[in-house]
Design a protein around this nucleic acid. Sequence first.
DNA 1: GTTCCGCATGAATCGATAG
DNA 2: ACTATCGATTCATGCGGAA
Lengths: 286, 286
Amino acid sequence: MNMGLPIDKIVLGDAYDNLRSFPSNSVDLVVTSPPYADNRKNTYQGVPIDKYVEWFLPISGEIKRILKPKGSFVLNIKERAVDGERQTYVLELILGMKRQNWLWVEEYVWHKKNCYPGKWPNRFRDAWERCLHFTVQKDFTMHQDRLMQPVGDWAESRLKKLSATDKVRDESRVGSGFGKNVSNWVNRQMVYPTNVLHMATESYNRGHSASFPVSLPSWFIKLFTDPGEIVLDPFMGSGTTAIAAIRLQRHYVGIELSPNYYNLALKAIDKEISSCQRGLDIELAP
Amino acid sequence: MNMGLPIDKIVLGDAYDNLRSFPSNSVDLVVTSPPYADNRKNTYQGVPIDKYVEWFLPISGEIKRILKPKGSFVLNIKERAVDGERQTYVLELILGMKRQNWLWVEEYVWHKKNCYPGKWPNRFRDAWERCLHFTVQKDFTMHQDRLMQPVGDWAESRLKKLSATDKVRDESRVGSGFGKNVSNWVNRQMVYPTNVLHMATESYNRGHSASFPVSLPSWFIKLFTDPGEIVLDPFMGSGTTAIAAIRLQRHYVGIELSPNYYNLALKAIDKEISSCQRGLDIELAP
DNA sequence: GTTCCGCATGAATCGATAG
DNA sequence: ACTATCGATTCATGCGGAA
């Protein structure tokens, strides 16, 4: 097979079947949120819980082949609670992927600032999901400086407490210790993030289950790729990863089984591209 | 053995040895943060990574026996990153405890607002730890209403404007929750929390530090016990769980191997009790 | 009595160095 | 080679002394 990657395209079909036809060492980053395990039928791509690991491992095996040596695989997933218990298939999946010689580098937490409402007798609302970071080798690409963010409440609240006099004194008098320290604070406004990501979910009114927000794949795309590189999402859903890639001037490759989602993603991408051509939302990446 | 629980006492010695002598069905809640796996030697209670699960499972087995049927076991733990990879012993521990017939009800995330600094080529700072919630049976005790919190950012911003004195007074009254003066204006709208807990670590300028802040065991003690019930921490460390229990009018039982930490805990408890007896700010919990 | 700044201090992790 | 130790890096907090 190996007929080359369908760059900037979405393939309609099964993830594993199509991944097998993709060339090796050709993708810089894989970001995806696979269908979660579910025992109910008539659900979107529902995979039974007890078959989840054996269903996913062949897919992650193909991803390992397709990924470039210094590339990364970010897997957004969260196990369900069934019958009062958290299921263990995600834990078993991590162990299984380690047996496939994946390196489990890190587990990022996506803290969903606006999680679904609800009340149950045995648990609170679930406000977080795992973003598992796997690589092929210890030496991988990571552009940390791009994700530096404004410093937190600490410096902000302390800066606000500075009087106007203090700030003026800082400008006029550079030599004195006090003024110098203040200018240090003002200048050093950016810090590195942590492995906890605070992002709100996006609500689509169309009645489809909310996947991750554009900001989530965007964060990892900035972190693990350069502009012009290739991002693969084998479970494209409504096209969120493609939107993020387009906005950041990366190429995308998608696979989607459901014709319904496939069409949704195509529309979303069309809309995104046309809005770009109108010159509205263009930002220079990174 | 079964000579009765050493209520409101800390036992100096090994966790497993002492747990074996505790009576069955006698404790309402176990909250603990065991020593984390470590390959370095000469470390406080360091347990090698490859022996961690086999070291802990006998302990969790005893805990299951000692816990009352409707009780809970909250395990605060986080795997280390070694040689560029997250270790898997915590995942294996969860699977092992399920084989012990524990129910893995939930995984709470403790988001450490002030995490350890540092910069590495392959990861950001680690700002979260797991709080694994296990029970013996599906029907367990959970007092959700006690943990309702004010809704939204306006409450947070109001809290920040409180003077330091107000905050201290508030802390000593309820332990970690919201005090009287706060609740005056908080009574507008309360919501249930989620399974993501935002708490800063406590750092003492001198001496030893607590593994988790008092607010962490306090949160679970309020949630899973009534006043007068019994909280067990088989790795008491510097006594944080006991402090939380005392403030919330629960009984504590502790075990600690290191004489150094044992003495620290005794001192901390003495200090806590004497400040209570001086009549400062005691209110009836929950 | 407050408020506010300066400083020390962490359940960290990696790479280099030494044994 | 493999293990043990050390230095460099980094930032939100509490606390103490100063204003």
